[in-house]
Nucleic acid binder design. Structure first.
Lengths: 245, 245
DNA sequence: GTGAACAATTTGTCAAGACATTCTTACGTA
DNA sequence: TACGTAAGAATGTCTTGACAAATTGTTCAC
């Protein structure tokens, strides 16, 4: 049992369960709750914090979903061992790089309206030939090329400019335009770079690339974006945390 | 509103919320609940099924977490558009291949006890030099080599034999030995195959490989397995569903 | 000393109820 | 006709309470 110092602000618009979860997460990250240590049981926590047990359960379930703690019936709730990285999230590369402090920069190679070919139309759920926005961008991290990114977007709410795309990530711009991204289907693979890719990414001939093809859907289920990105495998890998439910 | 035919077996050990979730999921997969369609509201569903609303909420939350439906306050719960593939899961390649009907086969190249080098020891959370089990396997799908897999396991509950590893997946064997895998940290990348890998995987010279390095932890937070797998990029890619919480 | 049974502990499931917040639609007024 | 407000609809949050199931520890009997 480890004593926890949790302050609750009942006048805050932040739900109580979330306040509890946040503070427990913070204690874990700060080392106050050591890996392997046991949390107080739900009934006791609820009593001490003056909350109901389902509210505590909701807070702890949030932490379970984040992979920070595990629960076992009859035993209790324990902080997970090991350095937990970020879970799989619906974020753009721009967001990712900025989060880890690698100053991202973008060069827009093309932004045009084109008729969607069969494959793109299928991914976006529009008729073949529909006019869609096609983006081609080169993403830099710490001054070096990292990824070549193609995206296709259906005509819609976000009016994208090269200036905006060079200043912010695509998902950020979509969100600012009111698009609520919800689910994405993604395929991760690898292949050898084409000569054009080699040139743009400043890599050696036939270097390996990590590839990601992703279609993102909004909360109404409409495709809002289809992307095909390639990354220099020498400079980029994807780290994820898998959590068994 | 779409009418749902849900049967509940109250004598079953399967929790009620799970029975509801399963049957809704099945209706979605079968097309009875079309993408974009609206579920009955929680209060009505609870009333019709003779369950409490929190039980219905739990069932729906399960579906939300699977990316099958989205919820919006004031509006309702809607089936997501787009073909949702499996979410990211803590499964082994053997499980994956078997699930999609590609008969997996395994050839054990090595199974030995070795002193853990610094990197392996770090991953497994043991002292450098500790005796650990090292596996080297070649995985086939439909008669063709697909992946070359190295795994290191701390001395422990599972006594692995080449025979067992050729008949079943590693995770399956660990589970059968009572190991409860819970969280895994995974890094996905790409690189060019070494000559030895080229030979084993029957690929062309310097072909691209998709790489996965993963450390899996049990529900006590102990590392139970560290693996470094390479896949023929020409034959394998990873499909995942990302869900925004 | 070992195995089985029982008790204590803790999470998991479920119910009933109430209020808050967000979204959409309809109505009223300018 | 357009805009603002109010009402209705539906999810989100929280409370109180009870029983079930799994795990661990202890005790008793052989």
């Amino acid at each position: 049992m480890t004593k926890l110092d949790i302050d609750l602000d009942r006048s805050s618009p932040v739900p109580l369960y979330f306040q509890v979860a946040e503070q427990i997460a913070r204690a874990i990250q700060a080392g106050e709750l050591a890996p392997g240590s046991r949390l107080d049981n739900e009934v006791l926590l609820a009593d001490r914090l003056g909350l109901s047990r389902p509210t505590i359960r909701q807070a702890i379930q949030y932490l379970v979903d984040k992979g920070l703690v595990v629960r076992k019936r009859g035993v209790g709730t324990q902080v997970v061992h090991g350095q937990v990285k970020r879970a799989v999230e619906l974020t753009s590369l721009y967001d990712d790089l900025r989060r880890v402090g690698q100053e991202p920069a973008t060069r827009v190679l093309a932004i045009e309206t084109v008729p969607a070919d069969e494959s793109t139309a299928g991914a976006l759920g529009v008729a073949t030939g529909t006019e869609v926005v096609r983006l081609e961008r080169l993403r830099y991290a710490e001054g070096k090329p990292l990824a070549l990114m193609h995206n296709w977007l259906p005509p819609g709410p976000a009016s994208l400019t090269a200036e905006a795309l060079e200043a912010r990530g695509l998902y950020e711009l979509l969100r600012a335009a009111g698009v609520r991204m919800r689910v994405a289907a993604q395929r991760i693979g690898a292949r050898t770079a084409t000569p054009a890719e080699v040139r743009l990414l400043e890599e050696r001939r036939a270097c390996p690339l990590l590839t990601m093809v992703r279609t993102t859907y909004d909360d109404q289920g409409r495709a809002v974006e289809h992307g095909s990105h390639v990354y220099r495998a020498s400079h980029y890998s994807l780290e994820v945390t898998l959590v068994e439910r």
